[in-house]
């Protein structure tokens, strides 16, 4: 990145649509399709302004036919186009998962590398605003579980722009999951740390590079997406108590920056995974396993702790949802708990 870049404060939604617009201007093969991506500009504003700039040929409102347009993304990508296909809420994956799981993820492999599918699936994730069990899930682990999909989960506008540009230029299918509660929408309360300075110029952020959002020496909080913003607030509170927490933003699940996780835990000796996906069989277990597999290279001062949705669907009612989704208070309490252990 050059030194004389102009930056502005952008919301994550603005950063994503800007990254898309700049890449569409640079590369005529890129086009966008999905429900309400045109006139409406995307329900979560991830495509705002694109229709005016590029017209309906390149910004296509689709029928509510997710299997149709996910399959079409694959078919168009195979022909050399670079589709960006929006699944409005990740929860709707169920109606189009065959195209994603059995085809988009696997065709490159099954063709022995002969065919490529340069496409991006963008999708809204996360809860916290009472949208209940079919509109509040994160599910990134499910996408990361199947081999063949790169999985990007940004926590702020700067990262979102760079990662989105990388995603569009990648020759593989990329699932880009943006949390609704950090998009900076005018109609949903959000964590303000997600809105930050973003260069006007295009730039890329390589996949597989976690970012130390905040350095610390007592405990490592491995996290991603909106939970990064919650973890930073928790770390502030912990600092006031004399506990120094390092916050590591994974940024991409596939590829996963395993080295960054290990490096941090080697230093701190304590690990908390703060995750908004379901607890079992997912990201938090993966990170815990990574540490367990490398116990010969690090010394834990406390058992690994995981904070995640406790294996229940996301409930509607406010007190239930606040209980089910880990909050800043829970992160603080978990870290305090970790500090009381003495393993040797």
């Amino acid at each position: 990145m050059s030194t004389n870049t102009t930056t502005r404060r952008l919301t994550m939604a603005q950063a994503i649509s800007e990254a898309t617009a700049q890449e569409m201007a640079r590369d005529p093969r890129v086009f966008v399709m999905g429900e309400d991506v045109g006139k409406y500009g995307g329900i979560f504003s991830a495509t705002t302004g694109l229709l005016d700039q590029f017209g309906p040929e390149r910004v296509m409102d689709t029928p509510i036919s997710e299997t149709g347009f996910m399959g079409a993304a694959l078919g168009a990508a195979a022909e050399g186009l670079r589709p960006i296909s929006e699944l409005m809420f990740v929860d709707f994956f169920g109606v189009c998962f065959d195209q994603i799981y059995n085809h988009i993820a696997k065709n490159h492999y099954m063709s022995g590398g002969a065919c490529r599918y340069p496409l991006v699936i963008t999708t809204g994730i996360g809860g916290g605003y009472n949208d209940a069990a079919q509109h509040s899930q994160c599910l990134y682990s499910i996408f990361a579980h199947v081999p063949g999909l790169k999985v990007v989960v940004p926590s702020n506008a700067y990262d979102a722009k760079g990662l989105m540009t990388t995603a569009i230029r990648d020759d593989n299918p990329v699932v880009f999951l943006y949390h609704k509660g950090i998009m900076g929408l005018s109609w949903m309360s959000y964590f303000e740390g997600s809105t930050n300075e973003v260069p006007e110029e295009q730039y890329t952020i390589p996949f597989g590079q976690a970012r130390v959002v905040r350095e610390g020496s007592d405990v490592t909080i491995v996290t991603l997406s909106q939970m990064v913003q919650k973890s930073v607030l928790a770390a502030d509170r912990l600092a006031a108590e004399g506990i120094s927490a390092e916050v590591l933003d994974l940024r991409t699940l596939v590829p996963l920056d395993r080295a960054a996780v290990l490096k941090s835990v080697q230093r701190t000796g304590r690990l908390l995974v703060a995750d908004e996906d379901y607890l079992s069989f997912g990201l938090s277990g993966e990170i815990a396993a990574l540490v367990a597999e490398n116990l010969d290279t690090l010394r834990l001062k406390a058992p690994v702790r995981r904070l995640a949705v406790p294996d229940v669907p996301i409930p509607f009612s406010r007190p239930l949802e606040q209980f089910a989704i880990p909050q800043v208070d829970n992160i603080v309490a978990s870290v305090r708990g970790l500090m009381t252990f003495k393993l040797d």
Partner: peptide, 29 residues
Amino acid sequence: GKATGLGRGKGGHMHLFDPAVKFSCSGIV
């Protein structure tokens, strides 16, 4: 979102279940 709701607050407005009159609905189009 109340405990006296059809789904004890778990479902919300898109997920109403009343088996007594065989009514249900879904937020998935």
